[in-house]
Simulated scan of single mutants.
Amino acid sequence: MRKVIASVYVTLDGVMESPAWTAPYFNDEAAAFARSQLFAADALLLGRVTYQGFASAWPSMTDDDGFADRMNAMPKYVATTTLNAPEWNATFLTGDVPAAVTELKQQDGGDLLVYGSGDLVNTLLKHELIDELRLWTHPVIEGAGKRLFTETSPKATLQPIGTTAFSTGAQVHAFAPAAR
C-alpha cells in the first residue's frame, strides 16, 4: 500500500503562501532532504494552484543531480474542479477526491508526495488519508497570507515522528496520525 506524504513549507505563524521567504534557508542540506523525499515517491499529488505554478515553472528547469528531470517525468495527480486539459504528465481528479486518493493508495508503488496544496492537505487530513505530514518550518513571521491551518481545518491529533534541522535554522517536523 502506498503512503501519502504531505510536504509543506510554513512560516512560524503558519503562512504557506508565496514561499519566496524560503530562499535564505535552502542550502545543500535542505536540497539533499528534498531530493531524498522526491526520489522516494512514485507520483505527485497536487492541488490545482500548486500544479499550475509548478507546471509553468518546472518544464524549463534543469540541474545536475536529476531533480528537475524527476519532477518533470513523474506522474502527477491533480485535484481540480476547473481544469480540463491535463499537461505535464498529469491526471485530473475531478470527482470524489478522497475516494480517488484512497484508490491510489491501494495500488502498488512508492509514496504519493503532496507539495504545498493547503486545501488538498486539509481535505486529506479530514478523510484520514495522510500518512505523514512534513512541515518545513522557517524562522520567519509573515503576519499575513494564506495559512495551512485555519478555523475550518479538520481537527486532527498527530504524533511527532522526527525532526530534521538544517544549519540555516529551517527544520522539517514530521508527524504521523496518532493511533485511533
Rank of each mutant, 00 (worst) to 15 (best):
A41V: 04
M16N: 03
V49D: 02
F54I: 03
S18Q: 11
L45K: 03
D28K: 14
Q52T: 14
R48Q: 15
L46V: 12
S18V: 03
A20T: 11
P19H: 03
R48F: 01
A34T: 12
G14N: 09
F39R: 14
D42A: 00
L45A: 01
W21P: 04
M16I: 15
F39A: 10
F33R: 09
A30P: 02
Y25F: 15
S18P: 00
F54H: 03
Q52L: 12
S56G: 13
A20L: 08
L44E: 06
L45D: 04
E17I: 00
F33E: 13
T22W: 02
E17Q: 15
W21K: 11
E29T: 05
D28R: 11
F54K: 05
G14R: 13
T22K: 02
N27K: 10
L44K: 06
S18T: 02
S56K: 13
W21N: 06
F39L: 12
T22M: 15
P24S: 08
A34D: 11
A34W: 01
A20S: 15
A30V: 12
R35T: 11
G53K: 05
D42R: 00
Y25D: 08
F39M: 13
L44P: 10
L44M: 15
R48G: 03
L46F: 08
Y51R: 05
G14W: 01
L44Q: 14
A43I: 04
A30N: 04
W58M: 01
P24R: 05
Q52P: 00
A30D: 03
V15C: 09
G53V: 00
M16E: 09
V49A: 15
E17H: 11
W21D: 08
G53S: 08
G53A: 06
A32R: 15
S36W: 13
F39S: 09
D42V: 04
Y51I: 06
S56R: 14
M16K: 01
F26L: 14
A20M: 02
F39Q: 14
A40H: 03
R48P: 05
A34Q: 10
Y25S: 12
E29K: 02
P24Y: 11
D42C: 06
W58L: 09
A55C: 04
A30F: 14
L46H: 03
E17G: 12
V15L: 02
P24N: 12
F54W: 12
E17M: 01
P19F: 02
V49S: 07
N27E: 08
E17W: 02
A32F: 05
L45R: 08
A57N: 09
S18M: 05
